[in-house]
């Protein structure tokens, strides 16, 4: 009974943490989508000076643990004279990391559009960038929406790693409550439940957009 009481009592506090988690995720997704779109396009460039660095970026960030990346940015960079507060450090790390995954999604999305679409657009005199913006990316976006939704959900969960550098998001808020109440099971369960609620809502929203775009 005590366990449940403590969970109820601290639930508003946990929700505040959840709000921080959502904000953290939203910023990171924003960075990730912008970065991923350009790097995804860059990987397909015929110019090696563009495509090689983009490939290296993706391979490096996919091939190293997020926890190491967060630590490198928060604990490592100060040695080089770049000191970031926990919150910006977390956003940068999560944004850079998701950028690599989203780049792969975007690349696959662009490649899923028939070559004839690009050629038809260019044959009308539209530039490469205009073609990307008006013809290729809108169609690619529709195709990759499920994969993007998946990435948003992953990022929501991965943002819990920001707790290790002291960002007071949901996980860290929970740990704080536990350190006062010692109710490990109920509080961790509460945290899990809130994460589940958030990811469930995100997946519903993505599915809704998918359906709307399919009929458009």
């Amino acid at each position: 009974m005590d366990a449940l009481m403590e969970l109820f009592k601290n639930f508003p506090f946990l929700l505040l943490g959840a709000w921080e988690t959502l904000k953290l995720t939203a910023f990171s997704v924003g960075i990730g989508v912008i970065l991923g779109t350009f790097i995804g396009m860059g990987r397909l460039s015929k110019i090696k000076l563009i495509s090689y660095p983009c490939t290296i970026y993706v391979e490096f960030l996919r091939g190293t643990p997020l926890l190491v990346q967060i630590s490198l940015i928060y604990f490592g960079l100060p040695q080089l004279g770049i000191q970031l507060a926990p919150y910006p450090a977390a956003i940068v790390a999560l944004g850079l990391n998701s950028g690599a995954y989203i780049a792969e999604i975007v690349r696959a999305g662009i490649q899923s559009i028939p070559k004839g679409q690009y050629e038809a657009s260019r044959s009308l005199g539209l530039t490469h960038w205009q073609t990307m913006r008006y013809i290729i990316l809108p169609q690619a976006f529709r195709n990759i929406l499920p994969a993007l939704g998946n990435e948003f959900i992953t990022l929501t969960k991965d943002s819990s790693l920001a707790s290790v550098i002291g960002v007071s998001e949901l996980m860290r808020s929970g740990q704080f409550v536990i350190s006062r109440t010692f109710q490990t099971f109920s509080i961790y369960f509460g945290i899990a439940f809130i994460y589940f609620l958030m990811t469930f809502v995100i997946s519903r929203i993505v599915r809704y957009i998918e359906r709307r775009m399919a009929t458009a």
Partner: peptide, 20 residues
Amino acid sequence: VNTLRARIGMVFQLFNLFPH
């Protein structure tokens, strides 16, 4: 190249209309 293409119209075997 873009000016050139704007002056030359092209019709393709597979139409290539923009589906969206």
